[in-house]
Design a protein around this nucleic acid. Structure first.
Lengths: 341, 341
DNA sequence: TTGAAAGCGCTAACAT
DNA sequence: ATGTTAGCGCTTTCAA
């Protein structure tokens, strides 16, 4: 089943003009007489002519389309960031196509290549939790495909990056817990190799240090799949809860982990004495939980906007950009009931 | 900044062959000698040659790419449906690009046209809440672009459609409330012109009728933006709550409305006597609310899978399909605390 | 077994 | 002011 539409040739034939004249008339070129323009424009309108963007892309090597690759939409941080990206892109005349890696390295590679070869003008990406090899991105970067990283950035590729101050987010949250009087604070972190995991872990550690609390390695758990697999979160929690010296508070290192851990903690807290918890989360619904959830919230929309702005800057820059910067946003700590002493 | 990659021409030049020979060798044509093939393949591999899909699309009028348009990702129903679609598409060798209409008619038109002209092989769409003119879709449908509707379907366009039994979902939910002993059941519905709104409303009405409860028009509210605007939900609720004869239960007609109404009801219920509530929702988090939320859940993943299967069926069909069917899935009623008497 | 040439839809340099 | 031609990367007749 094919999908046909009118071409310049059709117009040229019908009007007894050459393709180039038609092309020029459509683009309102100064060299075309008003009558001809009018003729062409009218007929084009009549048959609902639309330039074929595929042909245009082939010709111009530009598609005015930007590719976005995120781990998953159901994570609110990403859907909000995407909204920010779209708002900028649309205002600057770009279209946007979006795919999910589903936290799979293989899927990410396929999606990235598909987009690149589909001639997107640039790529905005937050890598999957599995991704610890960056060749697929390096290759494209070396070939001058504009790329901007956000959130889960790739340190070793030199381009614009937009992140949250993950160190500070975790530091502030941990400090808050300490000030509240919690002593045994556990951290359920995401995959170890992720840059943001490392930063958040550092923030957690530093807060403990600064308050002279010894770091207990058994209180630090990693979720290899970033919480995507419920059982890994369950295991992390149950191993924490089976320690001789149980934690009295838990800090989650990622959106997915945060929501996955809630049912387990809720069940546990219903029986025994309370464990406080908080975590990174951009969900809109955290106030509706009982207890309402204390969270570290990232300005996802703004991060998305900034990333898109940087990307378009690269795309539209005449000369190669040399001094790439990393833009850092502040996250905010929102204290609710789940961290009440 | 341009993004260059190796072409058939490069290979031909380097190997002193013609473009056509190289093309054939790459496609393993029988007419090419094994030596030549080997030569070409090796060199192609060496320079990491990839065919340019833009050129291919221009030539073949096929992109092996499917476009998906949904109102918004943050609605779990849609992100789950997308996951179902992807699972089928990938298994059949298609790629997928996704956009959000943000419940805006204008944005939907732009996205749909962008995809169509970007040469997607087919389109999967659930229309925005604002969409009550379908010309943009009819036009493409008339031009033989394969389209499948899911969830928010367009009745008047003849193609495959995949939906939930919205009538039954609302009917069962309302019946449940009635059996629980609620007498004054309100319904906060989505935009009136949407087909699914009508079906859900019908289900609600029919359940009341079947139980000999008179329908009170003042208990039926519509959210023109489908709950996307928090204030419209607030207004609906406060006008319900200011009735002389207040409802004792509320049925929400859409995911977005459901989550938006929760804070208001929670606040209200904290003070006065309880109002029960339930609604359509595919959120993973409804069990974490207090009270845990009774919901009508749709098999979003399966709906997505079915829709994608139908679409690929159209795309790959040699002859035009004449007898289009509408596939209907059952939703399930999950009873939790929010509807306890 | 290989090559030359046309064509997909469009633009642009180069005629006229 | 308009037409001719070449070319973007690829496939595919048609010739050799």
């Amino acid at each position: 089943m094919k999908f046909e539409s009118a071409t310049i040739k059709d117009i040229a034939l019908k009007l007894n003009l050459s393709k180039s004249t038609v092309s020029r008339a459509l683009r309102d070129s100064y060299e075309i007489s008003n009558e001809t323009k009018k003729l062409v424009l009218e007929y084009a309108k009549k048959i609902n002519y639309r330039p074929n963007p595929i042909a245009l892309s082939l010709k111009e090597r530009r598609s005015h389309t930007i590719g976005i690759v995120v781990p998953e939409f159901s994570n609110n941080f990403f859907s909000q960031a995407i909204n920010g990206m779209e708002s900028i892109a649309y205002s600057k005349g770009y279209n946007v196509i979006i795919t999910q890696s589903h936290e799979s390295y293989d899927r990410e590679v396929i999606n990235v290549e598909h987009m690149a070869y589909r001639s997107v003008d640039g790529l905005l990406i937050s890598v999957s939790v599995e991704t610890d090899n960056f060749d697929h991105l390096k290759k494209l970067h070396d070939r001058r495909l504009p790329i901007v990283f956000f959130d889960r950035i790739v340190e070793e590729i030199d381009t614009y990056k937009v992140v949250c101050d993950n160190f500070k987010g975790a530091y502030d949250a941990t400090s808050h817990l300490i000030k509240k009087g919690f002593k045994n604070i556990a951290h359920i972190a995401s995959a170890e190799h992720l840059f943001i995991t490392q930063k958040r872990l550092e923030g957690y550690r530093k807060a403990l240090e600064d308050h002279n609390i010894p770091i207990q390695p058994e209180l630090i758990k990693h979720c290899v799949h970033g919480g995507k697999i419920s059982s890994e979160v369950e295991e992390a929690i149950s191993s924490l809860l089976s320690l001789k010296k149980k934690p009295d508070a838990i800090l989650s290192g990622g959106d997915r982990i945060t929501t996955e851990m809630l049912p387990f903690l809720k069940k546990f807290n219903a029986l025994k004495n309370k464990i406080a918890y908080m975590g990174f989360s951009n969900s809109d619904l955290t106030d509706l939980f009982t207890p309402s959830l204390s969270v570290i919230r990232q300005p996802a929309f703004e991060i998305g906007q900034a990333a898109m702005e940087q990307l378009i800057k690269i795309i539209e820059s005449k000369r190669p950009i040399l001094d790439f910067t990393t833009q850092t946003f502040e996250s905010s700590i929102i204290i609710k009931e789940s961290t009440k002493k």
